[in-house]
Amino acid sequence: MNFWLELLIKVGLALAIMLPVALVVIFGELKISAHMQSRVGPYFAGGRWGWAQPLADGLKFMQKEDLVPADADDRVYKLAPYIVLMGTLALYVVIPIGPDAVARDLDLGVFYVLAVSSLSTLGVLMAGWSSANKYSLIGGLRAAAQLIAYELPLVLAVIAVAVQAGSLSLNDIVNAQASFHLFGVESILGRDVTWISSLISPFMILQIVGLVIFLVASLAELSRIPFDMPIAESELTMGYLTEYSGLRFTMFFLGEYAGLVSMAAIAATLFMGGYSFPGVSEDVLNFLGPVILLSKVMFIAFVFIWLRWTFPRLREDQLQTIAWKWLIPAGLINIVATAIFKVAF
């Protein structure tokens, strides 16, 4: 097949998966939040269960006036949403949804993920700085502090996975999880025990420390509650988003949820076996892979929404303490423990 045609199909597919899934997560957030607070949530738009609420919101935002503050740094202000969405979409290049279905299997897969995921934080910082608003400025600075504190735990958690899998490519990491054999033992007393190793094959069992660190750090990178100090409605109005209106605001909003979906997909790929499932053969995975991955993504997204209504917002100093005194030492020790395990067996 022609190279460009193939690329076009891949981009189209990535969009066709990303946008609806992001909309479903937005709707899920509305509904789950409502039910956790004994409310009904959106009810009228679209008829049953108010399923069309996210679409209606999008249409509404489209008709809103586009306001740019007179004092703002015009160019940077307008460029910021572009950077956010570019960084988010670039993440979808490496996420495999089936044994052969990945936009591009980069050798540096996870490394690329870490690099590109910081790009949208740059957009956030640009938005905060260029708005010429005090709330925005403080929100942007808080976002920067949060990124530098939680980038490291994220990197360290990923390194432990790389040690375990022996590769940085996301496809190889999924394969390493699918073909995992604990201690290389295949039978005990003449009985086949491979099912035990396939049961604990996802890295979430052996890398449980890494999984917790990764989820906490990605929650902070996405600046969701309990790490939403950059937005903090009650103190900073809307943080770095204060001056944005209409479609530019929608783009930040979309980027946030698309980022949540991609982070959940990466967590699912690194720790939960991605598109693979114990006992399902590779031929079947070509069809079922996307469904399996999506259900894992939805599960992690649900956990993120659940945490939102479980923990109160942290203080800035608590945020730094958690990162530097708990997550980073835990991440370093996790790497050493993983390597010892790897070398000994």
């Binding site: 981009v11 935002f61 586009d66 570019m86 960084g87 936009a103 479609l247």
Partner: peptide, 20 residues
């Protein structure tokens, strides 16, 4: 591939603003 994906990300914002 990476550049095209990024360009499409920018295109979503640009196209959306155009329609809006």
């Amino acid at each position: 591939t990476v550049l095209v994906f990024m360009a499409v990300g920018a295109l979503i914002v640009g196209g959306g603003l155009l329609v809006s």
